[in-house]
Design a protein around this nucleic acid. Sequence first.
DNA 1: TTTGACACTCGCAGGGGGCGAGTGCTAACA
DNA 2: TGTTAGCACTCGCCCCCTGCGAGTGTCAAA
Lengths: 341, 341
Amino acid sequence: MELDRRKQRLLQVIVESYVQRAEPVGSHFLASQPELGVRSATIRNELAEMTDLGYLRQPHTSAGRIPSDQGYRFYVDHLMAWERLSAGEARTLRTANRVSEGDLEQLLVQTCRALTSITRYTSVGALPANEEPSIRQVHLVQVADRRLLAVVVLDNGQVVHRFYELTRPLVPREVTMISNALDQALREVSVKRASSVSITDDEMNPYQDMVRALIGVIGRGVVQEDGDLVLEGASHILEQPEFREANKVEPLVRFLEARRSAFETLRRMMSESHIRVSIGQENPHEAMQEVSLIAARYEAAGRFGWVGVLGPTRMHYDQAVSAVRYAAQVLSESMARLPLG
Amino acid sequence: MELDRRKQRLLQVIVESYVQRAEPVGSHFLASQPELGVRSATIRNELAEMTDLGYLRQPHTSAGRIPSDQGYRFYVDHLMAWERLSAGEARTLRTANRVSEGDLEQLLVQTCRALTSITRYTSVGALPANEEPSIRQVHLVQVADRRLLAVVVLDNGQVVHRFYELTRPLVPREVTMISNALDQALREVSVKRASSVSITDDEMNPYQDMVRALIGVIGRGVVQEDGDLVLEGASHILEQPEFREANKVEPLVRFLEARRSAFETLRRMMSESHIRVSIGQENPHEAMQEVSLIAARYEAAGRFGWVGVLGPTRMHYDQAVSAVRYAAQVLSESMARLPLG
DNA sequence: TTTGACACTCGCAGGGGGCGAGTGCTAACA
DNA sequence: TGTTAGCACTCGCCCCCTGCGAGTGTCAAA
């Protein structure tokens, strides 16, 4: 059975009041809201039905009602007013862009910080990658007599650097030659395969060992790196009253530990939708079933990453959705301006 | 008044028991320890004196005693057996070294992870810097027609990269020339002054605007970066029973937010000692007065950084001190092998 | 269908009492 | 003078009880 107009209005008031005050909402409070024009007894009948239908929960008999996951879901899908960001908030997000000087990784980090400062929720994000990133460019730089710095640019905008110790000094011409050879050999190679590349060019024969070692260093470097995942403001989650009891925090701590696997689940999820609100139990990852995630995809030239916020199910969905959407939009625009691929 | 032999022995048993069991220690438990050979009444007299002297505290009248900050201090200075690291733990710390391929920043991160996995405490660390880091080397790499990557190596081992968008394409020879000019101009310049460097070379006149912009990008990049501070395993702090109540966690959360200022305090502290155990109120930073910090300096060629762990005052000082000492030693050795400064 | 009335449920805060761990003190003893 | 047994005392903790109040469900009347 669908919710009639009055039940919808009730659900909306309940969600908004509960989100703001973190206390169960009772029939008397609802009756005191002017626009409903109906007494508490009537409301109690409605609430009982809505509870049967699964939109509301009662923490205990003599408490008011709070929204269930399903209730939040209905609110997000049908009742929520899409709040416009304030000018200041929009500016905060755009500024994140400006300070990052065209570096996508920096840009994502700054955007997450901005999201956290606007919403006060923990923010998360991932750099774009179709399947997995591959190498776009390799450069060797000689930083000392016997010390090379390998700078690797990935096609998701990440830059990874690794040092390498030489057994004998090289002259600049040799460095350039090896650098070019590595660049040629590793271009377009996915990070996982990088370690197994080999170079057979005759001219490189004298440097065989060094090149093999360098490829090893680079391969390990690009795989190990998890700079493509961003998580900002984890401590904000502790501010929420629902996590005041220490044992409630545990699933979240586990989420933070296992972030690699969680982020992979999220990435799969985001491959199917542009913006997604996952409420409590709807979440695909078990460590997140007590929280809500709002994530949006950003994309350009056929690649996508995502960015979002993580908070209690009792979340300011309207504000958070607006902020996340706008963040993703800013990211998409910036990314379109970068010559990435 | 100094503690006599028996009082010292009592303090030692109290600290060790309390560290392990997190429960106040009473006179009966102490009397049951074989080596003391004295009954509980005698012990009660001793405990009363030690409490007067400030080495012990009583959470409430009918509880046992727990060590005060001063008690821990005496334990650390005079009673603690300097535990040897197990072979496995030492290996964990050395392995952190091996996987970092000579990159000091990576090395510090990995060492902190190892420290956290050994001690189960939050670990912290800072890259070496006398006063503040300065620029060691600058390289421009052309990553696309109109896109440069500036790679900046700092003298504390950090590598910072920034992208820069060109208004018109450059040929390789131009990139090399500008790269060399920037390198020459910025070498040895401290990161804070980098932005105000200018180049007056005649040959560079056609590129004045671009060079000014690049210096700006680099200057902002190296200042903003806080990759020289490392913090690993913050969530472990929540495992400690003393932080089970949410409000006890608050000072720590504030510490994490304000880490830049806290780390500066710590750095000043570490400039005066090689290894330092700061217990509760002894801590210079107010956000840390409920916790203990064990930090050790690592150094080579006149520069030093530091690494340590952060936990409750009820801490396994013996194990933690050994682990931190060894970590610093490994770092010093690795750093000596790097051609840094 | 709505409403007022009313009995009912249940969490919560506060008070009282028993329990037990641990103390301080005292008097006796080596 | 140091050590010990004994004992009264303190005080946090747990459990139970109670009263309160918020909120509910239901029913009969409008």
